[in-house]
Design a protein around this nucleic acid. Structure first.
Lengths: 146, 146
DNA sequence: ATCCTACCTTGGACATTGTCTAAGTCAAGA
DNA sequence: TCTTGACTTAGACAATGTCCAAGGTAGGAT
């Protein structure tokens, strides 16, 4: 992700302040922000950036494969800048925290030919769900929630 | 799913016409309707049924484990009445068709202890994506899509 | 059979997330 | 520095889901 801007330039992208800011927000730690969270953080650096621009830029980053779109059970999609190393996700059922995880083996290999129904399968995503350490000890709201 | 109504009664549910209709829509084939599709089909049998009632009933069925909520890349969640046999899903990237599939082995076992970060993991869902037979031969719109 | 009442349904307002458009702006090449 | 096509903006619109107050009804009690 670090030289994302260079890679975008190489693709002939116009390097605008808005795109730079969105890329900076996603850069660094392994975050999984929603579009709105990206927008909030982008606004902190560039107050006049429009919501539509954030959506546009995120979609473009997804299209060119620099960012992965993650659909969890929540309504909003999340955007994962860790697109260069294959991984899966571990989601807390209570607080929604997401961690990147690396299961062993190829999940695609687990699907027998007879279960493919003529599809040409290109991808398998695995989502692990459970309670994160914080949520499994803190019963203040509801320990029975999953 | 066939004696769902009986099981609901056993749980002390009030058996209303609306709930019966929603259950009937989900009964039978292995469908994966959105809430709106359920509502449309329910309306055909009980014209005055409200959208909120469909949402309420679906949520309740999910809560008690009679129906599974499936989040794909699409915006709308889908509802899968095949909750009594563990399975995963195969989704067409183009047309959105969903099939139930049965990979071998337990996906949970593929996640090493060192990759669990103290979570108590309860579930692993696998989503396979690709083109269904119809969509991989029919290039009328766009064969390059995925 | 009738009544009661807690639970269910209704319609519509509202919330959230995402998409589209027309008009204005600007990055980068000439 | 000029030009131009790509980018951004604000706000309307669309899709999906949630909430609430008012009225209706299933099913137990009498």
């Amino acid at each position: 992700m670090s030289d994302l801007l260079q890679r975008l330039r190489d693709r002939g992208w116009r390097l605008t302040a808005q795109r730079r800011v969105v890329a900076e927000v996603l850069d660094g730690e392994h975050v999984h922000y929603t579009a709105d969270e990206v927008h909030a953080r982008a606004t902190a650096r560039l107050p006049e950036i429009a919501r539509a621009t954030v959506y546009n830029t995120l979609s473009e980053l997804v299209t060119i494969g620099e960012v992965i779109e993650v659909s969890t059970a929540d309504r909003a999609k999340r955007y994962d800048p860790n697109a260069r190393h294959r991984h899966q996700h571990l989601v807390c059922s209570r607080c929604g925290t997401i961690r990147d995880v690396h299961p062993v083996g190829d999940p695609l290999a687990a699907l027998p030919e007879g279960e493919r129904f003529g599809f040409s399968i290109s991808d398998a995503t695995v989502t692990y769900r459970g309670l994160c350490p914080d949520c499994s000890t803190d019963c203040s709201t509801d320990c029975s929630t999953d």
